[in-house]
Design a protein around this nucleic acid. Structure first.
Lengths: 351, 351
DNA sequence: AGGTGCTGTGGGAGCGCTCCCACAAGTGAT
DNA sequence: ATCACTTGTGGGAGCGCTCCCACAGCACCT
C-alpha cells in the first residue's frame, strides 16, 4: 500500500544485491556469508550479517533452487491411503524420528501419500519434476514400481524395509529375523513346545524374515518346524482371527502363538477367546511392533519392539549423505548400504 | 558419467526452449500451451503437445516460481505437536477433505507442525521466505501470533475455527452454536429438565459458542439457565471427570449432561459411573465431535457431528480464491468471508 | 484504399540466486 | 627482489521460466 516507485520496488522483499549494497560488499560475498562459506573475513561477515538483520533479508528459495539445482526438500512417500497412515502408529513414530533429525537442518520435509492410482500419477510427475532432492520410502510392496522410477530419475532414496534380500536401494530395517527368533526363544524358554506362527503378508520381505526367524529358532532350539503350525496372515486383525481359527482347527493342542504383528495378535486373541482358550494359561501369545495395542490389550501383550523412531533418524542420515554426494548410492557403483537396527522383546502378561 | 559435452548439456532435462525448437515455435508459445492459455491455435497447440510428449518435458518448478513469483504450494499448519495430530481424528478428516479438494489442482500441500518453539521459529522463517502461496490454519488458540504474522506478510490464509467473533481472517467453522442448541433441545425433548454443561477451553471461540448455544436453548425452550449447572472443562478426559464430579456435588439431582467434546464426555462418564449413576437411565449424556470414541463408548454416545471433511474442502476453496486474487482477503478491504457449516446430531443410546 | 480491430506469435528482459573466473593483497620461500 | 601460492573479494554469466511488448496477418468496417 505504501508502494509507489518504478514497479512495486521497495515494497518487496530485499534481495541479495540490496544486502550487498547495504553492507558495502559484492553480491558474491553476501552469498558466501549466507551459505556459511569459510572464505570470508570476520569483519566482512559481521558487516553482512548486520545488513541481513537490518533489512530482514530472507533468501528466495526459488531463485536458489533454480541457480543451484537443488530444492532443499526431501519427501517421505507413503504408498498407502491417508487412513492407514493415521491408523498405524508406525508412521507417526517414523515421522517423529525423521522430523527430529531434520530439525537442525535447512531441509524441508514433505509428506506425500500415494494410495490411489491418481495420487501415484501425481507423484510420478512430481518426482520427474525433481521437486525434491531425495525420497524416503516406507512400507513398499515387492512389486512397487516406485523404487525403479526413483533409480531411473537418479533421485537419492532410502527405503525403510528392503523389498528383498537383493534390494538395490539404500535401506534401513529392523532385525526382523532376530526379533522373531527372540520371540520364539522366549516362548520355548517358558516351556512352550507347540509354537504356532501367523505370518504377515508374505510379499513383504520383513514378514518373510520373521517367518525365517521363527523357523530357524524352532529348528535350532526347539522341537523342529511343523508346517501345520504355520498359517498365513496379512497384518490385519481379521486375518489374525481367521488364521487363528484355522490353526486351532488343525492343531488344537498348540500352546503358543507368535503373530507377525500386534494387530494380528489382537485378531488371534479374539479367536482364542472365542474358542475358550485362556491367555497365557492355555496359549501364550506374542506380537510384533510393541504398539499401543500391545500395551492396552487384555492381557497386555508381549511384543517385539522395533526402534522405529531411530529408523527414521537413520534413514534421514543416509539420505542426506546421498544427497550431499549429489547422486543415488546405486549409481556410485559402490556396495549398497543396508542398516539393520536391533529389536527388543518387551515381555508382558500374555506369555 | 556419460556426459562430456560443453558442461553437462544433453544429460539434463529438456527445457522450454528445446521443446520450442522441436515444435518449430517460439518459447512464448510453448509457455502458453503449458499454461493452458486460450490464445493458441489448435494446430500449434497440437504440435507443441507432441513435442512435449516426445521429449518428456516437465516444467522446472523453481524457474517458474522465480519468474512468476508463486510456488503452487499451500501449507496446512498445525500448531500442535505431531502426537496430538495423530491422536485426533479431527486432523485426519480435515486432511482428507483438503487433499481431496486439492487433487484436481496443480497445488502441492505441505503439512507443517509447529508444536514446539523451535518449530514455530522455523515456520516463521518459512513463511517469511514466502515458500507457500497460502496457509490453512487449524486449531489456533486465541493468543496465537501466527495469524498476525500471516497478515503482516500478506499471505492468504484461512482459519478453521475463528479466534473470536471479530476474526479478521477468512474462516470456516461448523455451527457450534446451533450444534449445541440441537443437543440441548434433544435432551429437553426427552424430558430432561436439569441439563448440565461441561464447557471446553473457554479461550477457544468454538467452546464459547457451544456454551452460548447451551444457554440460549435452555432460556428459550427450557427452564432457564442455572449457573450451578455449568462447569468449565478443557476438552480433556481428566477435565471432564473433574468437572463432572464438581457438578454432581453441586447439583446431585441433574439428569442430563451436555459435554463440549466426546473426550470430555468420556471423562464425565467415568465420574458418573463412579458415583453410581446409570447412563442414560439416571443421567443422559451428549458429546460433541462424533468421533470414534462416541461410537465405541459404553453406552454409545449421542454426539454432535461436524462435517470436518467438508470444512477442509471449503477451506481450500476459499484459500485458492484468495491466492488467485493474489492477496489476502483482509487487504482487499472487503467484508470478510465466514463460512459456517451445519452440524448434525447423531442420536445413540446415551440419551 | 485506408483505417481499426482482433488473434496468434516471437522473443527481449528480468526474476534472485549460485557458480566460477579474475584479480588484488598478503605471505613466505628462494 | 622475485616467484608461487593462498586468502578474500567483486561481478559476469547463466539457471529456465513468465510477462509483456511488438508485430504480422487477417477480417471487417467506413
Amino acid at each position: 500500500m505504501a508502494t509507489h516507485g518504478t514497479r512495486g520496488r521497495g515494497g518487496g522483499r530485499p534481495t541479495l544485491e540490496e544486502v550487498a549494497a547495504r553492507a558495502g560488499v559484492g553480491r558474491g560475498t553476501v552469498s558466501r556469508v549466507i551459505n556459511g562459506s569459510p572464505r570470508v573475513s570476520d569483519a566482512t561477515r559481521a558487516a553482512v550479517e548486520a545488513a541481513v538483520t537490518e533489512l530482514g533479508y530472507v533468501p528466495n528459495t526459488a531463485a536458489r533452487a533454480l541457480a543451484a539445482n537443488r530444492t532443499d526438500a526431501v519427501a517421505l512417500v507413503v504408498p498407502e491411503p491417508e487412513t492407514r497412515f493415521f491408523a498405524e502408529p508406525y508412521f507417526s513414530d517414523m515421522l517423529r524420528g525423521v522430523g527430529a533429525e531434520l530439525s537442525d537442518t535447512e531441509m524441508q520435509l514433505l509428506l506425500i501419500f500415494a494410495g490411489s492410482d491418481k495420487e501415484r500419477r501425481r507423484l510420478a510427475q512430481y518426482l520427474a519434476a525433481h521437486r525434491v532432492d531425495g525420497v524416503l520410502l516406507v512400507s513398499v510392496h515387492a512389486d512397487d514400481p516406485l523404487p525403479d522410477l526413483l533409480a531411473q530419475l537418479e533421485i537419492p532414496a532410502v527405503i525403510s524395509g528392503p523389498r528383498s534380500a537383493a534390494e538395490t536401494l539404500t535401506s534401513v530395517d529392523s532385525d526382523n529375523y532376530g526379533g522373531a527368533r527372540s520371540a520364539v526363544e522366549h516362548l520355548l524358554s517358558r516351556g512352550r513346545s507347540r509354537v504356532a506362527h501367523i505370518t504377515g503378508r508374505l510379499d513383504v520381505y520383513g514378514a518373510q524374515r520373521r517367518a525365517d526367524g521363527y523357523r530357524d529358532a524352532l529348528r535350532d532350539l526347539g522341537p523342529g518346524v511343523d508346517p501345520g503350525l504355520i498359517e498365513a496372515g496379512d497384518f490385519t486383525e481379521e486375518g489374525g482371527t481367521r488364521a487363528m481359527r484355522a490353526l486351532l482347527e488343525r492343531r488344537p493342542d498348540l500352546d503358543a502363538v507368535f503373530a507377525a504383528s500386534d494387530v494380528t495378535a489382537a485378531g488371534a486373541r479374539h479367536a482364542l477367546r472365542g474358542a475358550g482358550r485362556r491367555i497365557p494359561d492355555d496359549v501364550a501369545l506374542v506380537g510384533y511392533d510393541d504398539s499401543a495395542i500391545a500395551r492396552h490389550m487384555d492381557p497386555p501383550l508381549t511384543s517385539v519392539r522395533q526402534p522405529i523412531e531411530e529408523m527414521g533418524r537413520r534413514m534421514i542420515d543416509l539420505l542426506l549423505a546421498e544427497v550431499a554426494d549429489r547422486r543415488p548410492a546405486a549409481s556410485r557403483g559402490l556396495e549398497r548400504t543396508q542398516a539393520v537396527l536391533a529389536t527388543e522383546l518387551v515381555t508382558r502378561a500374555s506369555s
